[in-house]
Amino acid sequence: MYRIGELADLCEVKADTLRFYEKHGLLTPSSRTESGYRVYTQDDAARLRFILRAKAVGFTLNEISELLSIELDKSNRVCADVKGMVDIKLAQVQAKMAELTHFQTSLQSLSDACCGGPRSAEHCSILEALESSTERAEHHSHRHEVHQHHEPHHAHSKVTHEESGN
C-alpha cells in the first residue's frame, strides 16, 4: 500500500500528477484512510505506469482512457482495436513531422537568403519573401491596411492615448 507521495516517488512524478489523473478519471485510489489520505495498491501503481508509458509515446488523456478501458476488458476486445488506435496516432505524428519538416525547410530558405547584416530592413529578403510569397499573406496585409484607413481618427487617437498610459 502506498500513500500518494510514496506512489509519486516510486513512479518519479509529482503528487499533483496523480491528483490530475484522478480528476480526469484515469486513476482512482483503492481506498482512503480514516483521515482522508489516498491509499494506492500495486495494481494502482501498475495502472499509473501504464498511463505514464502511454503518455510518453504521445497518447492524449482521452486516448489513454480508451486504452485503459480496453486493458480492463481485454477478453472482450481484439488486438485490432488497440492497433487501430496506435496506427491513427502514428499517422498523426507522421503528419506533424511532415509539417515541421516543411516549416524547417521554409525557415532555412528564408534564413539562407538574408545577409543578417546591420543594413536597414527596408530591403530585407525575409520581409520581402513574407510580403510576396502567398496571396493569403498579401490578402491579409491588404485587409489590415484597408481596415486601418477606415478607422475613425478619434479611435486611433484613443488607442495612442491609452497606450501612453495617460
Rank of each mutant, 00 (worst) to 15 (best):
R47V: 04
H139A: 15
V39G: 01
D87I: 15
T28N: 08
Q148W: 10
H102P: 02
L26T: 00
C79R: 05
H142L: 13
R136S: 15
P29T: 03
A95P: 02
C115V: 10
S133L: 02
L61P: 04
Y21K: 03
H24F: 06
R77S: 15
Y37N: 07
E138D: 08
T41G: 02
L90N: 14
L26S: 01
T160E: 02
N76H: 14
L52I: 14
I126V: 13
K89I: 08
H142I: 02
A91W: 12
A113Y: 03
K83A: 13
P29F: 00
L90R: 15
Y37T: 04
L107P: 00
A80M: 03
V78E: 15
F20Y: 13
L52R: 09
E145S: 06
E122M: 09
V39W: 01
L130C: 11
G84H: 06
S111P: 00
H102T: 10
R38Q: 03
V39F: 03
V82D: 00
I126F: 04
V82S: 09
S109M: 07
A129Y: 07
N76D: 14
H144A: 14
L18R: 00
L72E: 13
A46H: 12
T28L: 10
L72T: 11
R19S: 04
H139L: 15
L127M: 14
K55F: 06
E138M: 14
G36L: 05
A54M: 11
D112T: 07
R53H: 11
Q42I: 09
E22L: 03
N62E: 12
C115N: 09
L72V: 01
T60F: 07
Y21M: 04
K83L: 15
L100H: 08
V78F: 12
G116I: 01
K55S: 11
L61S: 08
H139Y: 13
D87A: 15
P29N: 02
S132W: 06
T101N: 15
P152Y: 01
L67R: 04
E151R: 13
C115S: 12
A113D: 10
L68H: 05
S109W: 01
H102L: 11
A45N: 06
V93A: 15
L18S: 05
V39A: 02
A45D: 01
I88K: 13
Y21D: 02
G58E: 03
F50Y: 11
G116D: 05
A46L: 12
E22G: 07
R47Q: 14
F50E: 07
Y21F: 11
T33V: 05
Y21E: 02
H150T: 09
N62Y: 06
R119T: 12
L52A: 08
K55D: 02
R38N: 00
R77K: 15
C79H: 03
Q42W: 03
L107K: 06
D87S: 15
M97H: 13
A45L: 07
P152A: 12
K96Y: 08
C114V: 05
G84R: 06
Y37W: 09
A56P: 05
S125E: 08
H154V: 01
P152K: 08
K23S: 04
A56W: 09
I64E: 03
H147D: 10
L67Q: 10
S75L: 08
H147Q: 08
Y21L: 06
T28Q: 10
K83N: 11
H144R: 11
A45K: 08
Q94N: 15
D73V: 06
L107R: 01
V78G: 02
S109T: 04
I70G: 01
D87R: 15
R38S: 04
M85S: 02
S125R: 09
G84D: 09
S109A: 13
